[in-house]
């Protein structure tokens, strides 16, 4: 048994080193002045200053965030509204809504994006607009994750029971859905929304297919500048990673505060 534990420990360390290696190298590289031999020669913050004052990069981050937040909000609203109908009025529609929402997990982003592009590009409708196209594809892309998050939360708080109780006290169902149920599942909602957000923020394939030249996000910025200074590029990678970290941490934190409040 002791040898067993030892082996498990070694295995964990090996995998952790493998996972950490690119992170650490990128991190050190972003501070390195010159790195031609085994060890970097001196450290500098210049590459961070250079990257953080680069207008294209900053705009790319803002664009990336915008194009990720809007679809996540739209999808959440749509699914919350559809599940309200399912839970309160037409329970047998549940299976249909589930199929609606889970198909995109089989149809991957590339197929989704190319099919939408081929169908609507040059159609002369509003859907031919690349930004509109991109937003809606993103909506479909995050649907499975959002659906599962919301569904689990809604069933874990006994939505129907709450709505019926509130109705007896004279509040309309839709009103109590918005003012009682949704706020109470907000932590779960935020959690899945955030996961979707970071998935979209890290997307490159879909944006490359739909709007590569017209809408440059941070990811496309990285791709475009892949042959420039490795140090500046590493700094950009670290900055993007920190943004994702901050997103995760915020939600984690808000959940913790909520839990503390509850237990107090």
């Amino acid at each position: 048994m002791k040898g067993d534990k030892f082996l498990k420990g070694i295995w964990k360390v090996i995998v952790a080193v493998f996972l950490l290696l690119p992170l650490i190298v990128t991190f050190v590289y972003s501070f390195a002045e010159r790195w031609i031999y085994i060890l970097p020669e001196g450290f500098t913050l210049n590459y961070y200053i250079q990257t953080l004052t680069n207008e294209n990069f900053l705009l790319g981050i803002v664009r990336g965030l915008c194009i990720s937040i809007i679809p996540v909000v739209i999808t959440n609203v749509c699914i919350l509204s559809a599940l309200y109908l399912v839970i309160v009025h037409v329970p047998n529609l549940e299976k249909t809504v589930q199929i609606f929402c889970l198909i995109p997990s089989t149809v991957n982003g590339i197929i989704l994006a190319t099919s939408v592009l081929a169908t609507y590009a040059g159609s002369g409708t509003i859907f031919a607009n690349r930004i509109v196209m991109l937003s809606f594809i993103y909506c479909v892309f995050v649907m499975p994750m959002t659906y599962q998050g919301i569904r689990n939360s809604l069933y874990s708080v006994n939505t129907l029971g709450i709505l019926e109780a509130a109705e007896m006290l004279g509040s309309r169902k839709i009103r109590s859905y918005v003012t009682i149920v949704i706020p109470s599942i907000l932590p779960g909602l935020l959690n899945s929304a955030l996961m979707c957000l970071s998935a979209l923020f890290g997307d490159f394939a879909i944006i490359k297919i739909i709007a590569s030249s017209q809408y440059e996000t941070a990811q496309s910025y990285l791709y475009k500048n892949r042959h420039t200074d490795t140090q500046a590029l590493s700094a950009a990678v670290v900055i993007l990673l920190v943004i994702t970290l901050i997103m995760n941490y915020t939600v984690h934190r808000s959940q913790q505060i909520k839990n503390e409040k509850r237990s107090a």
Partner: peptide, 23 residues
């Protein structure tokens, strides 16, 4: 009240089913 389903159906049909069928 079926209108609650409309936004979701709109997105799914227009940006998933029609393009896939078209493909």
């Amino acid at each position: 009240k079926m209108a609650f389903l409309l936004p979701l159906a709109f997105i799914v049909i227009l940006f998933e089913w029609i393009p896939l069928a078209d493909m």
